[in-house]
Each structure stands twice: as structure tokens, then as C-alpha cells.
């Protein structure tokens, strides 16, 4: 049995979601059609609005429908401190875990030479503009500890040096509550090299 063209299109479109194959797409489509028309309509309106209105924050590149996002607008944040992260989810994680009161810059990716993702794609020209403005005193590099993350950090650090911006990087180390025996060798060697005075 073949589905009508519209249902088939709906199922195909649902498959653009991550982790959704033909089978789950079909289940989703029939769930919305048979049991939750109201929910489906709300989803449709919201999706349409979101796709049309959500852009990037002018300052930190986070996705937002406002010109400047709520984190950048918030009072009491120190504009001299800038934390560099790869994804919007990283901002959320840092906000939850730390009492950091500076601003963020979201790259929405990282430098990846072999895929042709260069500095322009990450809005690093905009970051340079912020360095040039002279407000930022310290940039905290919080890119992921991969080779590409390292390349990204290096690039930003060089740029910071040109404008006299101090650069620091978050530590790489042993997870709290973890046991040394089970930590992978790369992390352990970073942790060992980056040891600190104690007491």
C-alpha cells in the first residue's frame, strides 16, 4: 500500500531530524495526524516562525530571535572577559556549572583545515573586531580538546597577542570522582603536565 503524496512528503520531511529513520518518521507522522492535530499545528507554526526569525546574536553569535541575546544584555556581566566556546550548548553548560560573569563568543564550529572550514566561517573576523575595540582584556579559550579545537585556540591566541589581549585556556584533566586507572592516557598526560601548586 502506498501513502498519499502529502503523507509521503511529511514522512520524508520528518527524516531531516537527527536519528529519525523511515520507520520512526512514519510513526511520528501518524501520531500527529491521528492523535495530536493540535500539537502538530502548534509545531508547524512554531517551526515556521523559528526558521524565519531566529538569527544570530550580533555580539556572541548565539542563535536568538533578538538582535542581541539575553546573556549579552544581562546587567552585571564583565565585558572585559570573553569566553570562547564552540557551541551554544557549551554556553549553557558553563552557565550551569560555573559562576562565570563575563561574556561569551560562540564559534558555531571549529577550524577544520581539511574540510575547508576557515576563520571566516567561524566569524573570527567579528571576534577580531571586538579585540580591536579594546574592551576585552582576557579571552578564555574553552574549545574542545581535539586537534581542531587546539588549532582554533592557537589562532585566537595569536590574534589576541596582536591586540594585547590576555589568553587563558581551561584546564584539561582528570574528571572529579574518577579514578586514575580508568582515565585515558591523553587526558592523564595533559593533567600531569598541567599540575598546580597544592595547598
Amino acid at each position: 500500500m502506498a501513502f498519499s503524496p502529502l503523507i509521503r512528503d511529511l514522512i520524508d520531511s520528518l527524516r531531516c531530524l537527527p536519528g529519525v529513520g523511515p520507520r520512526s518518521a512514519q510513526r511520528m507522522a501518524f501520531h500527529l495526524l491521528q492523535r495530536d492535530r493540535a500539537g502538530g499545528e502548534r509545531l508547524a507554526t512554531l517551526l515556521e516562525r523559528a526558521m524565519r526569525e531566529i538569527g544570530q546574536c550580533e555580539q556572541c553569535r548565539q542563535p536568538t530571535e533578538e538582535p542581541v541575546c539575553s546573556v549579552c544584555r544581562e546587567n552585571g556581566r564583565d565585558p572585559a572577559l570573553l569566553c570562547l566556546v564552540e557551541n551554544p550548548a557549551d554556553v549553557f553548560a558553563l552557565e550551569q556549572a560555573t559562576d562565570y560573569r563575563g561574556l561569551y563568543f560562540v564559534l558555531m564550529g571549529r577550524l577544520s583545515p581539511l574540510d575547508g572550514i576557515g576563520p571566516e566561517a567561524l566569524g573570527l573576523d567579528r571576534l577580531e573586531q571586538r579585540f580591536r575595540d579594546g574592551v576585552v582584556r582576557e579571552v578564555i579559550l574553552a574549545t574542545s580538546p581535539t586537534v581542531e579545537g587546539e588549532a582554533t585556540s592557537h589562532y585566537v591566541a595569536e590574534m589576541g597577542r596582536e591586540y594585547g589581549v590576555r589568553c587563558s585556556r581551561i584546564a584539561h584533566g582528570v574528571p572529579v570522582g574518577g579514578e586514575l586507572e580508568f582515565v585515558d592516557s591523553g587526558t592523564l598526560s595533559h593533567a600531569f603536565a598541567g599540575r598546580r601548586d597544592y595547598g
Binding site: 583545515p113 581539511l114 576563520p119
Partner: peptide
Amino acid sequence: LESRGMYKALSRS
């Protein structure tokens, strides 16, 4: 080569 651009970018200083 994609990495040429990266080389230029990283050696900017």
C-alpha cells in the same frame, strides 16, 4: 589544498 589557507591563517602573526 584546503590546508594552505589554514597555514596562512595560523602563521598570521
